[in-house]
Design a binder for these strands. Structure first.
Lengths: 260, 260
DNA sequence: GTTCAGATTTGAACGCGTTCAAAATGAAGC
DNA sequence: GCTTCATTTTGAACGCGTTCAAATCTGAAC
């Protein structure tokens, strides 16, 4: 029914009497309970049956409501599934937190973050591809670059900021201020590899971490060398232009490689 | 820009008595004609109606066959759409060819390749997201890392090899042998940005090319400096391990390809 | 208690990609 | 001509995500 070039798909026009699709606030207690119950059921079914097995009909049936009710609270299956990402991020944070306590080197901190990321997501590797598929769609609310996933994305970047800040780095380098963005992008690339990784236990992904982390960190340390100034300086200016000053109001934002 | 009656460009040979889903060879003349006709119609409808508007039913109707016939020749809509990529690549090659004739600098050659890439794909930017969505799925035959898209991927990498070879580069650097792989990856990142780019005419993507190409090329030239050896050498060794020995047939950055 | 305008819930229905048993066609031997 | 067999074609049917007009419920105002 939709003509091409459809308008922006709204996402969140959170006026006070907005439809309950976006968040839990502004709902009657009963409605909030129904919404939460549907979401819980959806995540459970997703765990049990995978992405394709978790049909809207099944979720609704298990939750004891009609399919229409699920769509009353969540604009689409994708929105419903987005809770999955948030949960994954929370689990990941809980897992890395202790490992980042001690003030270790950047190498150790980076490797710890990525390894725990893989470990946390391992149970869902089987259908990570299906998830990534919808996440890659620029129009999907699950896209790591979409407005809808902004909070999750920011939290993820904040993690990398703490990774950088906690490492004993010479704060002299102007790279320091943007490093967490670059590491976030690096993480995206690793996740992209992990998603495609069919080796047993995704062992190749772990190996890729072990082999790339030292290179990345060596590069970071080298960046302050004057020889690299003609590369580092314009690169930082570039980031300033493209990521720095919140560009357009529109959804399109920055490049990258995969979801969180 | 509108070659509706192009030859299928199916130069690659499939196993002789393979099922008709894979390629055009090994079919009775009539069957081959039917297959080609369905493919042509599909690409035309795709151009006219976009990805979502090009339903299998519509394609079949316009081709004058039943939907089942389309599925007899093509395992899925994705496989059918794959011809689109091949056509795009052919158009791109025709567009860059002349620009690469003169032996210009690496900067010019790289920028020319990417700009023509964007120009060639511009008419389809509207539904590139929908295409990319299915392409991102590791299980999809449209994934740039999948076995099904191996030929197209290899051709694309060959283009970057010619970009590197044609530039007046000091062949001394061991980076030289792997550079085309890295540039292919760089291209992937740029395309990802382009897909998400909502600026008018994708002008930001062009700007991103103009600003990143000099940085990339400066980095390439710097790579032979001894100071960077501790980064370049392990990086190349890493590529050797992950892309080099080709654990399976196609030499992508993908690990083992046995389907789960 | 009655009314009535929301908020909430329902489930049949739509169009999609895909499947598959059955029908139609073609080729080869008689 | 007829029979036999594989190749090709068909279209109804399935399950999916999604939509929506109608039904039901809720609670404030009377």
């Amino acid at each position: 029914m939709k003509p091409p070039d459809d308008p922006p798909a709204d996402s969140r026009a959170e006026t006070p009497e907005a439809p309950p699709g976006a968040s839990a606030s502004g709902l009657s207690p009963k409605a909030a309970r129904t919404r939460a119950h549907i979401l819980e059921t959806a995540l459970r079914v997703l765990r049990e049956r995978g992405y394709e097995g978790a049909t809207m009909r099944l979720i609704a049936e298990e939750a004891g409501v009609a399919v229409g009710s699920a769509y009353y609270y969540f604009p689409s299956k994708d929105h419903l599934i987005q809770g999955f990402y948030a949960q994954l991020h929370v689990d990941h944070l809980a897992a890395v937190g202790p490992l980042l306590e001690g003030s270790k080197s950047l190498d150790e901190r980076l490797a710890a973050v990525m390894r725990t990321k893989f470990e946390t997501a391992a149970p869902y590797h089987g259908f990570s591809g299906a998830l990534f598929k919808t996440a890659a769609d620029p129009d999907s609310p699950l896209s790591p670059f979409s407005a809808d996933s902004g909070p999750t994305r920011d939290e993820s970047k904040a993690l990398f900021r703490s990774v950088v800040d906690g490492a004993g780095l010479r704060k002299r380098s102007p790279l320091h201020a943007k490093l967490h963005e670059l590491l976030w992008l690096y993480q995206m690339g690793l996740i992209l590899y992990w998603i495609h990784d069919r080796s047993p236990g995704q062992e190749r992904s772990y190996r890729l971490v072990d082999r790339t982390v030292p290179i990345v960190c060596r590069l970071v340390r080298l960046a302050s060398n004057p020889l690299l100034t003609p590369v580092v300086k314009p690169a930082l200016a570039l980031m300033e232009e493209f990521c720095g000053p919140a560009p357009r109001a529109h959804g399109g934002s920055e490049p990258g490689t995969s979801p969180s």
